[in-house]
Simulated scan of single mutants.
Amino acid sequence: MSTPMHEVADGGVDTEHALDTAQEQVRRLITDHPGKIPVYTENGKWHFDDDAWAPGWTGGFLAGLVWIFAERTGEPWWREQAEKYSLLIESRKHDDGTHDLGFLFTPSWGRWHEIAPSARTANVLIEAGRTLAKSYNPAGRYLKTWVDDGSSFIDIMMNVGIIFQAGALSGDKRLTTIATQHSLTSRRFLVRGDASTIHEGWFDPKTGEFLRAATHQGYRSDSCWVRGLTWAIYGFGTAYQWSGDDRFLATAQACADLYIARTGERLIPPNDFDDPHPRLTTEASAASIAAAGLLQLAGQLGPAGNDYQDYARRTLARLSTPEFLGRAAEGWEGIIKKATYHWGNGLGVNESVMWGDYYYVEALHKLSALDDARGHSS
């Protein structure tokens, strides 16, 4: 029995074949729809209308995908496109109407700064971080969402890194303090004792008192919306990366352990772990985020993180099968199928979503680098 091209005989993943497939999907997106930034697909075709749920927040993922391919191939065309798509969102560095500036600027200008640091790239990242820091509530020590002054999401743990980076680049310790305090508040109020996560926490904006838990995209307020849990794995790992605070590493690890325990051998989780009758059993964007976050955690833990790396590798192998990996030959424009944006609002359900595609490719890129390093050292 022959082994499919996208899989290797030991049950792992052929990262180069998977990255080639993803690269061709993105090439088609940016050549067929130049300058347009989608959020999710409809019947496999990219949807370009304004986001009906949240202020536009996905431009950084498309730019980030293009930066990864520019780095991977060294081709001038990809580099030109990467700069173009980053420039398209540059003005958002002053957008104080969203809590998603990290999503916008870390994959895009953050990668640009990592590859070719300059005063300009540093300034963009600093300005974006300072803008997000304006949403800080000192009474409750949290960053508010666009929903309300009293609202904070677990998602913001994926955005707080831009404030840490702005603090490091500018030397502004106030920014570092804000990022640290928000992370501690999220750790206390949005991560439960069993390491499951609350989607939204409501605070009294005047006193800072925590009032209640809520959800927009999960089963109910006391359940565990899985994408939120994966935001926590990756986000607390990032907070540890910038701060060196072991409390954040411990939280990332606890969330990762719960995710692996509850997802198990199926490798791809549902939208919410506590929904007793899920209409869809897979939320592939959460699996993509988890794979990237677990690889980050594995790198931070060294040999003690080998189990996380193994689980990420097996997750990517599953995502790289025909069940989940989109192909143009099948009329599918996204990369990862069977993802969900907003179940309750019926947006991008059982489709591709930009962040699912981005974190899948980011995880493959990380894994490819690990495998290259292992090959060179053997």
Rank of each mutant, 00 (worst) to 15 (best):
R72V: 11
W146E: 15
W225R: 08
W53P: 00
R174L: 04
I154R: 04
W57Q: 08
D100L: 13
S223N: 00
T282D: 15
L364M: 10
V226L: 13
S86G: 14
R79H: 12
L125C: 08
A369L: 07
G237T: 07
S288V: 14
G235V: 03
E333C: 02
Y311T: 07
G299Y: 09
T207R: 08
R120H: 15
E323T: 11
R327T: 15
V191M: 08
A22T: 07
G201A: 11
T73E: 10
K173D: 15
F153N: 03
D357W: 10
S108E: 00
Y234C: 08
L267F: 05
G74K: 03
S221T: 07
S288A: 15
P34G: 13
R374F: 07
T15C: 15
G264H: 09
H199W: 05
V13C: 04
V349N: 02
R318D: 00
G193I: 00
I233H: 04
D310W: 09
S288Y: 09
I289H: 05
N159Y: 04
A290F: 08
P269G: 08
R92K: 14
K84D: 10
V66C: 01
S186R: 09
N306F: 05
D20W: 07
M5E: 10
E265V: 11
G305R: 13
I126Q: 07
Q241A: 08
F153K: 02
P322E: 01
G12T: 06
D310Q: 14
C255I: 07
A250H: 01
M5L: 15
T251C: 11
F48E: 04
V226Y: 00
G44H: 01
Y341H: 09
D245R: 01
S91H: 12
Q181E: 15
L370K: 05
A128K: 11
V147Q: 13
Y219F: 15
A363N: 03
L301V: 10
N123H: 14
D371W: 06
G201H: 03
G293I: 03
I233F: 01
Y136K: 05
T340H: 09
E283W: 03
L370C: 03
T145F: 08
P276K: 12
F273E: 06
D100N: 12
A179K: 12
H376Y: 05
S285G: 04
A166H: 11
P4F: 10
R247Q: 13
R227C: 09
G56Q: 07
W57N: 08
R174A: 14
D50A: 14
T340N: 12
W112L: 13
I68L: 07
G331W: 01
R27Q: 12
D51P: 10
G12E: 02
L211F: 01
W57F: 09
F210D: 06
Y240T: 01
F248Q: 02
Y234G: 00
M157S: 13
W53I: 15
Q300N: 04
D257T: 02
D222H: 06
D274V: 10
D14Y: 03
P303C: 03
Y358F: 15
P138Q: 07
E330P: 05
E71V: 12
Y136E: 02
T3D: 00
R120D: 09
Q23L: 06
T21G: 11
K173C: 11
R72L: 11
A256K: 04
P138V: 04
Q81D: 00
T251Y: 01
R374E: 13
F61V: 08
E351T: 06
I115G: 00
A82V: 07
R212E: 11
